[in-house]
């Protein structure tokens, strides 16, 4: 994410939509991407991204400038996505199978798509689908977003050793299921 100036954050926290639009332009990509990877559903990811930005707009005056804005946004996004997963689990009728999710994701706009890339994308989607939501969040933040263990621990509000154990368990599952997903 490109850097967002303190001035922009202050103006947005005072209600400036122009300043907030700047924040949105710089952060919408990763917010949507993380939500989509965790939820594996385009409509849910859009809804979560919308809620995340409304939440950010309303909470900017509570943002502590000493912490990283990016990590704070990751935290809001992951929490919103995990809450959405839990809600979705409760709504049995709204359950989305992997095939449905793939069908829904046909219209995803991927930067410069090619046959190989689409194949890789499908493999990643299948791999993430093997994991539980907490493990998926860890893998998305580490392998796709490139966060360090410390940043993941802050974003998920968990101990750094819990980050390690979730990553280890997730990768063990991926190794075990490699023939199924490949």
């Amino acid at each position: 994410m490109q850097e967002i100036s303190i001035q922009t954050i202050k103006e947005a926290s005072e209600g400036s939509m122009a300043a907030f639009r700047q924040i949105y332009d710089k952060a919408s990509g990763f917010v949507y991407n993380v939500a989509l990877r965790i939820l594996n559903n385009k409509e849910d990811a859009e809804e979560v991204a919308q809620d995340v930005f409304v939440n950010i707009f309303r909470s900017l005056d509570k943002y502590y400038f000493g912490s990283s804005l990016k990590t704070w946004m990751y935290r809001i996004t992951v929490n919103a996505s995990l809450n959405c997963v839990r809600r979705r689990k409760k709504e049995i009728n709204k359950h989305v199978s992997y095939d449905d999710a793939l069908e829904k994701n046909q219209g995803l706009s991927i930067n410069a798509p090619g046959a190989k890339r689409i194949e890789d994308e499908e493999l990643v989607t299948r791999m993430l689908d093997m994991l539980n939501p907490d493990q998926r969040a860890c893998i998305v933040l580490r392998n796709i977003e490139g966060l360090s263990y410390e940043e993941i621990a802050v974003a998920l509000a968990i101990n750094i050793n819990t980050v390690r154990s979730r990553l280890k368990r997730a990768r063990e599952i991926l190794l075990t299921c490699r023939n199924e997903v490949a």
């Binding site: 949507y32 930067n111 890339r117 890789d120 990643v124 796709i144 991926l174 190794l175």
Partner: peptide, 16 residues
Amino acid sequence: TIVRPFEDTKQHMPQQ
């Protein structure tokens, strides 16, 4: 198995 598949993943963009 667990590193390479993620190396080339591109960011999905919303309809801005």
